[in-house]
């Protein structure tokens, strides 16, 4: 920053600082607002008279006697059984991350080390697959799944999410593996390792940062998915996102929109923690594909 080429004139500093501030408000304010509002009653968060009510909460005080209320959380988690969706989401995300990393490291390693032309074709096809809208694939699943009678169960959804995840995982891990010198596994094989031993005992230990980063993105894909989970899971097995979507229909009509607000905040919280701890990995993952171009 002491570099003269980077020093800004005063007006330009102000403009750029103002722009950053503007962007930060744009990015973060909606979440702050919703988290705050989820502890109020509906008459305050969606106030007819004055939006300031969401801050001061006169109706909340009138109805519950306190400044804040956990009624919305109680309603969604206990009454509407949101806790079950949380459990389902946990099962699905953990399984998806573990399975897709296992398949992805094996495949990505092979693609990075094979100089043959078909490795390129596989990557190209994977790119096309990655661009497929998920809902087009889902429309292909439904009929066969109904006939095989495997529709609606968690394992089915887990396998589908793993498969949909594969193209992305392969590309990312492939580019991470390319950054590890070939000499490493070749010298291990000269020392008597088989290819798999070289992969497991020599390459994977130095690959951890790449594996963690890719795992984060697999997690996000499984956690954030709406298309697959909403179409392939039965009512009892619903994960958080389709459950929230189902709150909107019937529950909103009953004047219980605050349940959905509380559920939304509950679903955002883990993501918040995730970014807090893994910010560096997420940033490096976003740029990993870019550098390789």
């Amino acid at each position: 920053m002491t570099n003269r080429a980077h020093r800004l004139s005063l007006p330009l500093t102000l403009v750029s600082a103002g722009f950053v501030l503007f962007w930060l408000i744009l990015a973060a304010f909606p979440f702050v607002w919703t988290v705050w509002g989820s502890f109020k009653v509906e008459a305050d968060f969606f106030s007819y008279s004055n939006w300031m009510n969401a801050l001061t909460g006169p109706k909340t005080e009138l109805q519950t006697g306190g400044q804040f209320t956990g009624a919305a959380y109680h309603g969604s988690w206990i009454e509407q059984g949101f806790w079950k969706s949380v459990v389902n989401t946990a099962i699905i995300t953990v399984s998806v991350v573990v399975i897709s990393l296992t398949l992805g490291t094996l495949g990505g390693y092979a693609l990075a080390r094979s100089g043959f032309r078909y490795a390129f074709w596989i990557l190209l096809v994977a790119l096309v697959f990655r661009a497929m809208p998920h809902v087009t694939l889902v429309s292909g699943y439904l009929l066969p799944f109904f006939q095989l009678n495997i529709w609606g169960f968690l394992p089915t959804t887990i396998i589908v999410l793993v498969a949909i995840n594969q193209p992305f995982t392969l590309w990312m891990l492939h580019s991470f593996f390319l950054s590890i010198p070939k000499d490493l596994d070749e010298s291990a094989m000269v020392d008597g390792c088989t290819r798999f031993q070289a992969f497991r005992l020599v390459v994977i230990p130095v690959m951890w940062p790449g594996v963690v980063t890719t795992g984060l993105f697999s997690f996000l894909l499984a956690y954030n998915d709406f298309t697959v989970t909403s179409m392939l899971l039965s009512q009892d097995n619903q994960t958080m996102v389709p459950k929230i979507a189902s709150f909107l229909g019937s529950t909103q009509a009953e004047g219980k929109v605050m349940y959905a607000v509380a559920a939304v905040v509950s679903a955002i919280a883990p993501l918040f923690v995730l970014v807090l701890f893994f910010q560096r990995q997420i940033v490096s993952g976003l740029t990993a594909g870019a550098v390789k171009g």
């Binding site: 296992t102 094996l106 092979a110 589908v160 793993v162 594969q166």
Partner: peptide, 13 residues
Amino acid sequence: FILPSLAAMFIFI
């Protein structure tokens, strides 16, 4: 090495 991943993509994509 690539078979599991390829099989998953083939069957489900």
